[in-house]
């Protein structure tokens, strides 16, 4: 655990046939940071997250997450991370409490602490009153907070989120941001999120990386990135500068998935 970085990648690369989705990325995320991974559709964000969460093996290069190698010690990595996918993936046919119980069991939360951890997570995310309701009756924002509750049960060192507020209304979005900041402050949890949303990146992230065509195009705090461009630049300008126009390089599948994620909330 000598590595001071929660995430540390060395020339991390992933190919799919002749497409290089992630190309030699060197990324270092300090422990305790809220880190935003930006990029247009098809820039390699999802592939990065899949590799860092051990779902996908790199073609070459290496990475450590929470001090453990994603290839040689994936089980150790999994014990120390949480993951919230882009789709609202809590089980609608179960109650909020039952969803939490499933996560607690799969993450080997000690039996003696199970009840208190679940009660704590429900309270923390403001879901106590809805605990015994079926999740299909929840609003999109509530489902997202339930997923955050699920992912905090085992006190992960690093939390990964894929487009955490996509499709949420502004109030729900701000609530999710607030809870993410709380998680970060209360547990010192390192948070890495992917986003298209510059407001989200500006608001929430202390550090950003912009991926373009699988390569790391820029890296720094929102303020430095903006200042480097011009005195009046917004984060939208920064994004456009490093990754071309949004959606131009997107693959149909990504856009389709994004659309479906948004539709599910309606």
């Amino acid at each position: 655990m000598a590595n001071p970085y929660a995430i540390d990648t060395r020339r991390l690369t992933r190919r799919f046939d002749d497409i290089v989705a992630v190309d030699g990325v060197e990324l270092r995320v300090a422990s305790g940071a809220i880190f935003g991974l930006l990029g247009g559709n098809g820039a390699g964000k999802t592939t990065m997250v899949k590799m860092l969460t051990t779902l996908l093996a790199p073609t070459s290069g290496s990475a450590t997450v929470a001090g453990f190698d994603i290839v040689s010690a994936p089980h150790e990595v999994r014990r120390r991370i949480g993951y919230v996918p882009q789709m609202l993936s809590a089980d609608g046919a179960l109650t909020g409490y039952e969803n939490l119980l499933l996560s607690a069991r799969l993450y080997a939360v000690p039996r003696a602490e199970l009840a208190t951890r679940i009660a704590d997570a429900l309270g923390f995310m403001g879901l106590n009153e809805a605990r015994n309701r079926l999740v299909k009756t929840y609003s999109g924002g509530m489902v997202r907070r339930l997923e955050l509750a699920q992912s905090m049960l085992h006190r992960p060192a690093v939390l990964f989120l894929d487009e955490p507020t996509i499709g949420l209304d502004p109030v729900a979005r701000h609530l999710v941001w607030q809870r993410l900041r709380d998680l970060n402050a209360r547990f010192g949890m390192t948070i890495l999120l992917t986003t298209h949303d510059m407001e989200e990146a500006d608001h929430l992230c202390g550090d950003l990386a912009i991926l373009h065509a699988g390569k790391l195009a820029a890296h720094g705090s929102p303020t430095t990135l903006k200042a480097a461009l011009s005195s009046r630049a917004t984060l939208d300008d920064v994004f456009a500068h490093y990754s071309g126009t949004m959606d131009q390089s997107g693959r149909l599948r990504d856009t389709d998935q994004t659309r479906r994620a948004a539709q599910r909330l309606e």
Binding site: T53, R78, R79, I81, G82, P85, M87, S89, S103, A108
Partner: peptide, 14 residues
């Protein structure tokens, strides 16, 4: 799988 539930299961240490 389409909902991301499989991903969540596979990221867990189970």
């Amino acid at each position: 799988r389409d909902l991301g539930i499989v991903h969540k299961l596979l990221v867990s240490p189970a």
